[in-house]
Design a protein around this nucleic acid. Structure first.
Lengths: 169, 169
DNA sequence: ATTTGATTGACAGTATACTTACAATATGGC
DNA sequence: GCCATATTGTAAGTATACTGTCAATCAAAT
């Protein structure tokens, strides 16, 4: 007789890691946007601002490696940050292809002011769990993301941020 | 003296739950698409197919509640599934606004055939963890998604799927 | 019965998140 | 110096994932 096919149910979908990751991402974005509504900033825009703050004069390609963010999408993100006058793009002298990224004064100010809201958002995401469970989940998730880094289409390359310093040194 | 501002670093971003959820979602989608390349189906399209299979004759609004998926986006998803002849939309007799959803023969066949690939993908996402850690992570994540359900802009309403049966009964 | 309010699917708009492709430019091998 | 190759930013295309709004329709209250 033919081997029995497992039943196809929604419960199987609800229990699948992929479904849970998608759901959790939806929830995380909703909470972030709600807490940071006053600043009109998305999670990705925030990550970009932090990276540019930490590495002034970084270029778009390295920025994409530092926040594990697709280069093409990042172009649009930067464009929006530029429209909001939070970020400046200056052509590099040594390499005419490259445009270097800097925070504007208002970008730096916004970043300073938004931090408490961001922290509130991050806390809210894990709020429903017991403190010990929050630590466990974060630890496992950190591990898993790190071990799966290469499986992503845009692996994180945090160390790339430093390369633009080595160029002239 | 003024209170000390916490330093703004990328390490803080890398350790934030929101960042980890986004990263894990990226990775999960990449793995799913890779494993299911032969079937040319995305995670959301798969969830929609399963829901329509489980609830034949469901309408788009209820489907969105059952897979916790925004109604507007779902319209496009269904359109793509229709273009690929995996799903049929039939106008309801009792309510002229409603279009009922059904799997086509090839939709049902594809769903049957893709299951092993989907299961491989789901397994791969957690592969790097030790078996005990996989269980722990899944349990905590299931809890957290459930407890945060209302925080999402499109809360899951699994029970909504049954309403269309009660209408005429 | 008519009006009020809710529901349904559709549309336009914004923002990720990826793909491939391309022109401009740089770099390394020769 | 020249040429093959690589890099950089950009653009077009697809697919989520949301916000609104809208017309058609339905249901319920008067």
């Amino acid at each position: 007789m033919p081997s029995k096919t497992p039943p196809i149910t929604m419960d199987a979908v609800y229990a699948a890691p992929g479904y849970l990751f998608r759901r959790m991402q939806q929830i995380a974005v909703a909470i972030f946007v709600e807490e940071c509504r006053a600043f009109d900033l998305t999670p990705v825009q925030y990550a970009a601002l932090v990276a540019i703050h930490t590495h002034p004069g970084i270029d778009a390609t390295r920025l994409s490696a530092v926040i594990a963010f697709d280069r093409s999408t990042l172009g649009n993100v930067i464009e929006r940050l530029e429209t909001k006058s939070l970020v400046e793009r200056k052509p590099a002298r040594e390499d005419k292809r490259v445009k270097l990224l800097y925070l504007t004064k208002s970008g730096a100010a916004l970043l300073r002011d938004i931090v408490p809201s961001v922290e509130r958002a991050q806390a809210r995401m894990l709020q429903p769990l017991k403190p010990a469970d929050r630590k466990t989940l974060l630890a496992l998730l950190t591990q898993l993301v790190d071990l799966n880094n290469e499986a992503s289409r845009v692996p994180l390359r945090a160390e790339d941020a430093l390369e633009h310093l080595g160029k002239s040194n």
